[in-house]
Structures are given as structure tokens and as C-alpha cells.
Write a protein that binds this DNA or RNA. Structure first.
Lengths: 196, 196, 196, 196
DNA sequence: GATGAATGAGCGTTCATTCAT
DNA sequence: GATGAATGAACGCTCATTCAT
């Protein structure tokens, strides 16, 4: 168990350091210091610096997927599921500032490379949205003229761009609940005021 | 004019190189070679490597802002303007693969830093969306319970996440027109099929 | 006896690993793995990495000296002794590829350092040749105008350069017996065909 | 010409540093300091540390080959040529202590690797001896029962082992002329006093 | 005695930046 | 203004050595 413990400690430290300085500006010794281990120790658990970043995503996205799937299983309608997904993502990102930043900034660099390797936990996360949309279309709740794979990009992009706002210097007065309500409503019924 | 010419050449080369390799993996000598100038020449036009990246954004976002504003001026309704904005962004990103990637990936790294410096052309671009939404609310076309500053993040995030899809290995069969129609419709009337 | 056993196991493993990768490229963990002991165990028997190399030479050269001395004691004439020495060295090196390589390559690095420390088993081995030559000169069999300390270098250098040939990729078709016959003859009567 | 100049300077510095500390203990910064250039400058002229060592051999052995070939061309008999080769090698090694040590110690490490790459200037040097022996056999001066490829190893091994003696702490009272006379005579007529 | 996880000093190499030409 | 050779600080990674178990 001890070794798993250290693995976790390093992951957590790396997430924090990557969020603060960015992957390329982060030094291994920064992570080591943050994790309170020696530089060399890191290489007992990871192959190289980039591997640490990948593991951060694997682990954190994995947890995110597991968690949201648990929540989604409790709901049956696609409409409710979409709301759950949005709410959960925003709450998690509000809670975990470092993860939010690492996803927002570093995931993208990595995504390009990962796409080739297809070690694609990120894609699994995106696909959850796609599947919800498909279900809604089959149920007859969601429009069929908007493609699920378009929606999944749109929703994730929207969530990700929002999720960084809490951690900016500028004031962002909304709570996750407020934003998630707005987003859910926006994606459900749109911006337009229906003509009566 | 000659010097402006070289400035432009370097910007263009840098955009390409940054898109291909990412800011941190791009070497000054890569940019110099792509721009067909000597390494040292770059420092006659830019203060340092990061300054080049900033200038890429300043210049490219500046052009984008200028261009979309021209288009928006031709329209009066917020509804039409939002459509224009969406369509234009996707078309531009489809056209300019390098810019799309640089915005998607590098802008985020920079955004964090820029936010502090407030040299904020990016914010100006975002704000255009916000202003459109406000106008729509004042006109009475757009709902007032969804905040303009939320929407601007959402729309940009969505557009940006979509705009990278054309340049991925995986097949993305939709044309900008199709996607922009879907997006526009999604943001206007939402996913739900209205109960009749 | 058990501890002596482990010492021997490590020496043998080290000889193999040093031969394969060279002293500097060999890792302690390579030797440990080859010897089937833990890394730390090695430090119960040796002071440091270099000490292992020294012990390899001490031990292997010691055995070589002991063995050749036994053989030499059976002969009386310097002429026969020189032949024995040559034959024995080549046979041993043919038999023990790893030792041959370690002597050929690593001994030289070490020799320079050892020379200063005078912990000089290597010199003892060389000196055997010198003593044979001196005996031959005293007997009146060997010329007195060629210095024993020159000959000892020459003979060892020749043997060592030959002894690696069996372990090279390139074809080396001669048996130790053939080569030792040629070398013995060469050192005894030279290359020239005597004018009749 | 300037760049060639710096290449030479680095080669010379590297030869000295490698001789003093050995390849693996030599730091790039040692070589840089000795050559009075910056660390990075070295990489403008060489691919990596090992490449420097290879270039030392290529260059120095190349010069050696060129030089000895010039001398050999002046002689016709194989007997004279062998003498020239021996004398020249010893003189050069006496003159250039650093080269002598680098050949003696580092060449062997490298030789193993080089053998696979066959970038084999060292072999060219050895072959010169072999060719002399063949010529002697064809002329009828040298015995045919001793193989040229055996002799070339023997002669080089002998020379190399001798050539280090001048640079050892221990006293080595002989001049290159004396040693080369002894060696030549040894290889020509052997150790034995001919029975009258 | 034996282990092997942890340590941290050390070094090869890169590359943004400078400056003599 | 333009060049590109030269610089040297910076950092990822390795591995001999230690020490708690």
C-alpha cells in the first residue's frame, strides 16, 4: 500500500504544480518538493515527466468518469442525465481548482498527442455526453437534427470554458448551481424567448 | 514597409510552427527557418519568444475582431448577429488550421498570464458575444435569466472545441455551414423538442 | 563459507556484466540481478563499484598467476617456460571470454590508477614473463641485448591483443594451439627466414 | 577556416582531457574549459560526447596512417618497412603522450563498438602491418608459416603496451630508438641465440 | 545478514538570447 | 539592418550508495 500511497502523493503534487506553472515550466524538482520526495523517487513511479501528466489525466478523468456514471445510473431520462452531467462537472471543477486548470490548459496539449496513441480516457468522458444525447433522440426528447458528436464537443467546450472562471482573478459571482441551471436551461430550450 | 513585411512573415511562420509543435517545443530557429530569416533577425522585431506568441494573438485576434465587426455592422438584430458570429468563427477556423490550433492550445496557456497583464485582445473578442447577448436582452429577443458573461464563455468554448475537429485525424464529416446551423439552432432553441 | 560463496557469485556476475557493458555502463543493479542478490547486498562485500572491478582483477589474475606458476614449476628451461606461459594465457582467454574482455578493456583504465596504488597483481603477472627472460639470459639461451622488461610488455601486449580475436564478430579461424605455436616460434626465432 | 580551427581546438582539448580522466570521467565542461569555448559550442561541431571520441580517433589515426604511409613509400623491402612502422609508432607515441594514453585505454572500449559500425580507421592502421608481412612473404624474406593477421595483432599489441611505458610513474630508461631497435630485432630474429 | 525503496548529486544536452561582423 | 556563431544557464534523468525494516 505504501507504494500506491507515494504514487498518489506525486500525482497530487504534480497536478498542483502543473496547474500553477504549466507543464513545461514545471520542474521535476518542483513536483518532488511539493510531494516531499526526492527527485529520483519520482522515477520509481513514472517513466518520465510526460508520463506524469498522462497519469494525472488517466487517474483524474477516470475518477470523474466513475463518479458521474454512478450519478447517471440513478436517472433514467436523457434530460435529467444531461443536467446531472453538467452540474457534476461544474461542481467538481469548482471544488478542484488545480484539476480544472490542468484540464483546461494541459489537456489540450496532450490531447493532440494522445489522439494518436488512443489511450483515450478523455474521449471516454466526452462520449458519455454523446451517449446521453443519443438516448434522448431515441426517447424522442431530443431533436434528431443536431448530431450527438457535435453536441458532445459543444457541451464539453462550454463547461470547460466556464469551469476556469472561478479561479480567475476577475470576479465571477455565480455559484455552480446558478451556472449549471443556466447552462442546462440554455442547452435545453435555447436563448430565444419563445414566441407566444 | 519592408520591416512591417518581415514582422508579418515572422508572425505567419510562428503561427505555423506553434501550431505544429506547440509553443514550448517550437524553437526560435524553427520559426527563423520557416520565415527564411536568421535567428537573430527575429530579435529585431520581437523582445523574446513569448512576445512572438502574444503578437500572434494580438494580430490574429485583431484581424478576427475587425473582420467580424464589419460583418456584424451589416446586421441589426441580436439573433442574426449571433448567427453571424458563430458562422464566421467556424469558417475562419476551418480556413486557418494553424490559427485554430494555436488558439485552442496555446491561447489557454497564455490566457492565464495575459489575464494578469490585461493586454486583453482575447477578452475583446469574447466581449463581442457578451454585447450581442445584452443587445438581444434589451431588444426582448433573448432571455434575461441567462447572464451575458456566462453565454460568452459558453459560446466561445463550444466554438473552440468544435473548431479543432476539422484538423483531427478522426473523420469529422460536417461542413462549417452544417455545424454552424446546428450550433445556431442549438443556442437559439435548445435541444428539447417543444411540447406541442 | 556462505559469505565467501556470495562474494564469489558477485565477482563472477560482475566479470560477466563488465565484459558485456564495460565498467562505466554497467550498473550495480545489473550485477546484483546477474548474481541474484539485492543491490544492497553487494555493499556488504565490496566498498564501492570500483572496488568490485579491483577484486575481479585481484581474484582472476591471482588464479591465473597461481595456475601458470604450477605449470611453470614443471619445466626447467626458460625456452619451455615461455612457451608454457604463452599457451596457457591464450587457452585461458579462449576459455573465459568475459575475463578476456575485461582484461583487454577494463584493466587498462584501471592499470593507470592501480599503478599509483601499487596494489599490483597485474604487475606480478607481467613480472613472470620478465623472470623467465632473465632466467633464459642467465642460462645463455636468450639474447642479453633485449631487455627483460621490454619483452614482458611486448609479450603481454601481443597475447592480449590476440586473445580478444576469438570473441570478435569477424572470423578468426585459428585454434589457440595454432596461434600459440606461431607466437612461440615468432618470439623465439623471429620472422626472418635465416640466410643459409 | 575559423570553424575548422575550433574543431581542431576541441579535438586537442578532448584528447588531453580523455587521456587524463578517461572518457567516462571526462565532463563536457572539462573539455570546453580546456578548449576555452562554451559548453554549447562543442555541440556545434560534434553530435555528442561519444562522437568527440570517435573524431579523435578518426583524425589522429588518420594522421598517423598518412604519415607512416609517406615513410613507407620511401622503402621497398618489407624488412625495412616493418622497422619503419615500429620506429614511427613508438616515436609518435613518445611525442604525443595524450594520444598514446587515449589509444591505449579508450580505443579499446570504442573498438568493440566501432567493430560493429565498421567506420574502421583503426583497422586500416592494423592492416598496414598485415600488408607489410604479406609483401615480405611474397618477397621470400618472411616466413609463410606465421599468418599476417596474427602478426598484425601481435605487433600492434606489443607496440601499444610499450608505448605507454614512457608516461608511467615508474622509470622507463629506454629511448624510442633503443626500444624500436630491440623490437625490430626481436620480431626479425627472435629471442633465441642461434645455435652456431 | 539481506533487502530494495529512497535518496540526491551529477552531467549531457538544449536552446533562447546576444553581439561581433 | 541582417546574420548566425557563440554563449551558458537550465533541467530531465540516471544510478551509486544508504538505511529502515
Amino acid at each position: 500500500m505504501k507504494s500506491t500511497d507515494k504514487h498518489r502523493k506525486i500525482i497530487r503534487a504534480a497536478t498542483k504544480v502543473f496547474a500553477k506553472k504549466g507543464f513545461f515550466n514545471a520542474r521535476i524538482s518542483d513536483i518532488a518538493k511539493e510531494a516531499k520526495v526526492a527527485d529520483g523517487t519520482i522515477y520509481l513511479y513514472f517513466n518520465n515527466k510526460f508520463d506524469i501528466l498522462l497519469c494525472v489525466f488517466e487517474q483524474e478523468l477516470g475518477k470523474l468518469i466513475e463518479h458521474v456514471n454512478l450519478l447517471l445510473d440513478k436517472e433514467t431520462s436523457a434530460k435529467a442525465k444531461l443536467e446531472i452531467f453538467i452540474t457534476n462537472h461544474l461542481e467538481e471543477m469548482k471544488k478542484n481548482r488545480y484539476l480544472a486548470e490542468v484540464i483546461h490548459i494541459e489537456l489540450r496539449q496532450t490531447a493532440k498527442i494522445i489522439r494518436e496513441y488512443r489511450k483515450n480516457t478523455f474521449n471516454d468522458y466526452l462520449k458519455i455526453i454523446g451517449v446521453i444525447i443519443e438516448q434522448g433522440q431515441n426517447e424522442g426528447t431530443f431533436r434528431r437534427d443536431i448530431q450527438p458528436d457535435v453536441v458532445q464537443q459543444v457541451v464539453f467546450g462550454a463547461l470547460d470554458e466556464i469551469s476556469i472562471c472561478w479561479h480567475t482573478g476577475s470576479s465571477w459571482p455565480y455559484t455552480p448551481e446558478e451556472v449549471s441551471a443556466q447552462l442546462t436551461s440554455l442547452f435545453q430550450t435555447g436563448l430565444l424567448i419563445p414566441a407566444t
